[in-house]
């Protein structure tokens, strides 16, 4: 271990701070971000918090309504249910893809990586549109199923929760794959050989050694996928066809249609607090940097 003296001397980010009472000049580079983030982001965010307890009149009635009325409770439960289902499916499929990516080599592996990355670059609206077309009653999927004689009536695949889940899983799989893949790549394969050499079966090795070792990645992926899911707006709005209202859309309805700012703000605060708690837990356990891959 180098002593503190050596660390500063070697200058690993050696602070030139407070040279004779003056501020480090590099703060000038940070100033624009601080001004924008605080002035144009955090203050407006704080205003929303304020709005939730002052509009239409001071008090906690907006939150009271959220806690007691049945409509917001239904929205909340729908959001949590869809997020939970989506997260489980995305994580399981994502784990498989990550595992394959981590254990394949050469072209096969690179193709897989590209295939996972490409959807990230395709507009969320374009994807929602495509799924709407694919899954609707007269869409290719139903056409094909009827043509194959598997069903007589078109299946209701879209404009319901199923459609929303399909669209969201599609969006979130890449976000599940990347953190898990990162952890798998970082694993020391010798551990697994060690386990095998000690007589453990492949299945035992997987469940007793590999899976626990990759759990940090799984956990990070779960938080990211769940948090993303909580804030989903476009996909439920398009693929839910107005029948599946999640938290984000409910906020939007409160503001854009019924113009109840205080009520919308209160729902935002709930969404924000939930998100920050989950991210905070991840930051504590896995570390923010690793989590965001």
């Amino acid at each position: 271990m180098p002593s503190p003296a050596d660390q500063t001397a070697s200058g690993s980010g050696a602070p030139l701070a407070h040279r004779l009472g003056r501020l480090d000049p590099y703060w000038w580079l940070v100033a624009p971000l601080l001004i924008v983030t605080i002035g144009l982001f955090l203050v407006p965010l704080f205003n929303i918090l304020l709005l939730s307890v002052t509009d239409p009149e001071p008090g906690l009635q907006n939150y009271e309504r959220l806690a007691t009325a049945s409509a917001p409770m239904r929205v909340f439960m729908t959001t949590l249910r869809i997020c939970a289902v989506t997260t489980v499916i995305a994580i399981v499929l994502g784990y498989c893809v990550a595992y394959a990516m981590a254990h394949l080599e050469g072209l096969h592996q690179r193709l897989l990586l590209v295939a996972v990355l490409i959807p990230l670059w395709v507009s969320v609206l374009v994807r929602a549109f495509s799924w709407l077309v694919l899954l609707r009653d007269q869409g290719p999927v139903n056409d094909w199923l009827i043509g194959a004689g598997l069903i007589d009536e078109p299946l209701k695949l879209v404009r319901n929760e199923l459609g929303v889940v399909i669209g969201m899983v599609h969006y979130l799989i890449p976000y599940a794959v990347l953190p898990i893949y990162a952890v798998m790549r970082g694993l020391d394969n010798r551990l697994l050989f060690a386990s095998r050499s000690l007589g453990a079966s492949p299945a035992t090795t997987f469940f007793r050694v590999y899976l626990p070792l990759t759990l940090p990645g799984v956990f990070a992926a779960m938080v990211i996928v769940f948090v993303f899911g909580l804030g989903f707006y476009v996909t439920p709005a398009v693929l839910g066809g107005g029948r599946v209202v999640m938290l984000a859309e409910s906020v939007s309805v409160a503001i854009l249609q019924t113009v109840r700012w205080g009520y919308g703000a209160a729902q935002s605060v709930v969404l924000l607090v939930l998100t920050l708690i989950l991210i905070g837990i991840m930051g504590r356990t896995v570390g923010l940097k690793r989590g965001f891959g």
């Binding site: 180098p2 002593s3 003296a5 050596d6 500063t8 001397a9 070697s10 200058g11 050696a14 030139l16 407070h18 040279r19 004779l20």
Partner: peptide, 18 residues
């Protein structure tokens, strides 16, 4: 030896350690 302050002294001379 390492940690004796020799590098810190040099960096103080160079102006990187106040």
């Amino acid at each position: 030896p390492s940690g004796s302050g020799k590098s810190t002294l040099l960096m103080a001379l160079a102006g990187f350690v106040e």
